[in-house]
Amino acid sequence: MNGICHRILTIGRNTFLDAVRQKFFNALVILSVALIVSSRFFRQFDFGSGELKFIADFGLGAILLFGSILAVVATAQLFYSEIENRTALTILAKPVHRWEFLAGKFLGVFLLLAVFTALMAGILGIMLYWRESSLMDRYGDQFGGQRLVSYAGLAGFAVLQWLKLGVLCAITLFVSSFSNTNLYSVVVSFFVMIICQLQYIARDSWESIGNPALKGLVWGLSLLFPNFQMFNVGDVMLFPHDATEQLSAGTPWMIGGYGVVYIFVFVGLAVFAFRRREI
């Protein structure tokens, strides 16, 4: 057991280092940081607290967008470089199970995503805090003496976002485990992501569909793909005072649990599909 953990961690760490030392990752990080920081300079809105929402929206959008790109491209890239460079051969020729190899790969990218979301959320938090402080001086009445942004909410949301990106990473790993080219798995994974983002439409509408065959199909589809819209709780978590309704305390945990379950499921399926692949 100890040995297994040790091997997975070693492979994960190596994957993480691999990613961090690649230019692609660094470029993406710099781009996202620039985007988040620049939201401050796009325009001065004389809206007081409205501007905070704009910055938050923009920052969270940047995290989601670049995080998704990172999750998909980094996973596919790190996986295929192993296959193409035959390093997977050297690792699997050692006493390493295939599932340990995949788990290590996942862990490495998951760690990468953790660093990415933490960094981005941190920068966004600093931007918001800085702006909020100066706005509070100018438009004190809109704030009623208290801060509008919940920074604990931001941290919580960052964790949820990380889990969501983790699910995306696991999906990409699953696709990569049976697909033959890097490009193919990137495209398919993005496609699956879009379905996951959209599946709520199916989920919400299947009850109103009359045709039983179609209803069954829609129902099946909504079960097949995880619902990514569940993670869209940034507004409520960041601006709890503004929202008309509040998220109940347990909901973020439920959403997080949902993400964790799907991470395990997709990594498990990746292991299953990879078990007899010829490399």
Binding site: N14, L17, D18, Q22, N85, R86, T87, T90
Partner: peptide, 12 residues
Amino acid sequence: FLPEAPYFYRYL
């Protein structure tokens, strides 16, 4: 095992 035409993690 040494595979043919090996190529390793180039950043290490």
